[in-house]
């Protein structure tokens, strides 16, 4: 890595769900449209990250009365009348822009048999379209469900953190387009410091739900190059609670495969030894 490692800090506490990141990403990277159907999942018609979706804004509507100070809007009986006709208590609307995590230990990169996926000088993980041969191994390897093969093409695509823009000294398109600085781009060390301060600030303000996700270099993927400030458990946003890079266990797997192969060899040898030579 010849340059400083850079990344994203996505502070979902200030995301307004405008989806400018999704559009900027598609415009800059010339990604095809991938579906024109209404999902009825709040305002999320994108559904998930994928071959043609490198930023995805999740919308979560939660009934969540506790922990919030409500000022009565009017005196008298109006509050007493708040007997719901249906389940209509207080609710909160969580929005969060998801992206490739650019893991420190990236399973997609590890398992790629062609060398198409590589670690750039910025510490990011990028697929080289001309080398990818469409084997699809990276897809189930990713613990976050980020990378995907494009239908009718077969090759895998995902966020490049705008590798071309980084090379020209520019920030990625999504961060540039974000109007609230929910998506922050910069040197990873700086972002981690900033994120820790932000969590403290939110805790002091009474937002006890605030937590960081993917910031810890000691987690199962060695820390994410794109990490998040969330207001609920990761799984609520469709993120795995405790992802582990699958290749962490690869030495053990090879060992067991070797032992199993030897067992096969030994077992069959034993059969021949037991049954002897010739016609039996």
């Amino acid at each position: 890595m010849s340059e400083e490692r850079v990344g994203f800090f996505t502070d979902t506490s200030v995301c307004i769900g405008c989806k400018a990141c999704e559009v900027a990403c598609k415009e800059w990277n010339a990604i095809p449209e991938d579906g024109l159907s209404l999902t009825a999942m709040s305002y999320d018609n994108t559904q998930a990250l994928g071959a043609s979706t490198w930023r995805h804004v999740a919308f979560i509507e939660q009934p969540r009365p506790e922990g919030r100070t409500e000022l009565p809007l009017a005196q008298g009986e109006s509050t007493a009348q708040e007997t719901p006709v249906g389940g209509d208590g207080e609710l909160r609307w969580l929005m969060s822009s998801d992206v490739c995590k650019h893991c420190t230990h990236a399973a997609c990169l590890d398992v790629c048999p062609t060398g198409s996926l590589f670690r750039t000088e910025f510490g990011t993980v990028v697929v080289q379209e001309d080398i990818c041969n469409g084997c699809g191994y990276c897809v189930p390897a990713c613990p976050y469900g980020v990378i995907e093969q494009r239908p009718h093409d077969g090759r895998a695509f995902k966020c490049t953190m705008c590798y071309d823009r980084l090379g020209a000294g520019r920030e990625p398109a999504c961060a540039k387009a974000c109007p609230t600085e929910s998506i922050q781009f910069g040197p990873l060390d700086e972002l981690r410091e900033r994120a820790a301060l932000r969590v403290d600030q939110l805790h002091e303000a009474g937002v006890t739900d605030a937590r960081l996700y993917g910031h810890d270099p000691d987690d199962g993927v060695g820390g994410d190059g794109a990490f998040f400030l969330l207001l609920d458990r990761p799984e609520v946003y469709g993120l795995p609670p405790d992802p582990v890079v699958t290749t962490r266990d690869l030495p053990a797997m090879w060992q067991h495969a070797g032992t199993a192969a030897l067992s096969l060899l030994g077992g069959l040898a034993a059969c021949f030894a037991l049954t002897g030579r010739g016609r039996r």
Binding site: A107, V111, Y137, P140, A141, C142, P143, P243, T246, T247, D249, L250, A252, M253, W254, H256, A257, G258, T259, A260, A261, L262, L264, L265
Partner: peptide, 27 residues
């Protein structure tokens, strides 16, 4: 024997719970 067992590693070396969870047994 390696051709016969390495495919277990191929499957287990993923984030797929029913495969990775048995990465010791699958070979």
């Amino acid at each position: 024997p390696v051709v016969a067992t390495y495919t277990a590693v191929l499957a287990a070396d993923t984030a797929v719970p029913a495969w990775h969870g048995v990465h010791r047994e699958l070979p």
